[in-house]
């Protein structure tokens, strides 16, 4: 009976989020071989938007058109944000913008997960923040509580809308995942279809997942190689090495950096002080001039 199931698993249910009563992620209680994480080098990013385009192609994102885009109803899971430096005479256009690719930060203590009334968004054992489209009823509480606002709602029925995938784009819809109907929330999955395949292949071959097994679409498309993706639990992975060299620790909300070295280090996480423990590290931009 499902009531007894609920009661038996209550403690587990409470702890689906790996932040326990201590207030920090408790890795010992939830051993997992894999924790997907990312690092993005803003110094390398040129703001070319290739990552965003790749994401559209990989994840069957609908093209909403100019009207809806200007109404803020775009579906870009991966968006490249522009920030302009403000000088004495307003914005310094000639200096160029600063870019920041922003997508779901796959928080370890995600604000979106606790508030969903139907439990449509959950934490997976490989450290992702998953979204179950079939379960979503569209209350949009997750987006309301997301500090980064990286969740996108299907305001219209895009699969049936004309020109959501103008020809020949309709020919290249990715069969590895669905198209989403109206009224559900969606967001970046760290290309779940790819990580799952990689995990299954590694399992078949009886070995741990390596960096060479999987790349996310945005990472693959980035011409500057600004995006690094991999398993943070594997000390050999590039992403783990980067996090370590930048002295950024997943389970800390304030990073204590080396006094001597600290000033040289560029690693930070966005809105870390809110304690969602995001899984994406950014490397601060140091160059001053335009691209």
């Amino acid at each position: 009976m499902s009531v007894s199931n609920l009661l038996e698993n209550w403690s587990k249910f409470r702890h689906t989020h790996p932040v326990d009563d201590k207030g920090i992620p408790d890795w010992e209680a939830y051993p997992s071989d894999i924790k997907w994480a990312m690092s993005i080098d803003l110094d390398a990013c040129t703001g070319c938007n290739a990552c965003s385009v790749a994401c559209y192609a990989e994840n069957n994102l609908p093209v909403v058109g100019k009207d809806k885009y200007s109404h803020g109803q775009a579906m870009h899971w991966m968006r490249v944000e522009r920030y302009w430096d403000e000088g004495d005479n307003g914005f310094q256009a000639e200096q160029g913008a600063r870019f920041l690719p922003m997508m779901c930060q796959q928080c370890e203590a995600a604000p979106c997960e606790t508030v969903c009334p139907v439990g449509a968004t959950n934490h997976t054992e490989d450290g992702l923040n998953s979204q179950i489209y079939n379960r979503c009823i569209g209350s949009r509480y997750c987006s309301a509580n997301c500090p980064y606002k990286v969740r996108y709602f299907n305001w219209y029925n895009y699969p049936e809308q004309e020109n959501a995938w103008p020809a020949p784009l309709n020919q290249q819809l990715n069969p590895d995942l669905t198209v989403r109907t109206k009224g559900v929330m969606e967001k970046c999955t760290f290309c779940k279809q790819r990580t799952y395949t990689a995990r299954n292949n590694a399992k078949t071959e009886g070995r741990p997942v390596q960096d060479s097994d999987v790349q996310t679409a945005c990472q693959e498309a980035c011409p500057a190689g600004a995006i690094t993706f991999g398993n943070l639990h594997n000390p050999e992975s590039q992403v783990a090495k980067q996090w370590q060299s930048q002295q950024v620790d997943l389970i800390k909300d304030i990073q204590e950096k080396d006094e001597k070295e600290g000033n040289r280090l560029r690693g930070y996480r966005v809105l870390e002080e809110l304690r969602p423990y995001p899984s994406v590290m950014y490397l601060e931009r140091v160059r001053e001039s335009a691209v």
Partner: peptide, 12 residues
């Protein structure tokens, strides 16, 4: 769809 209410991201 809910879009006709002119909600958007972030005004969900």
């Amino acid at each position: 769809g809910m879009g006709v209410a002119n909600m958007d991201n972030p005004h969900v």
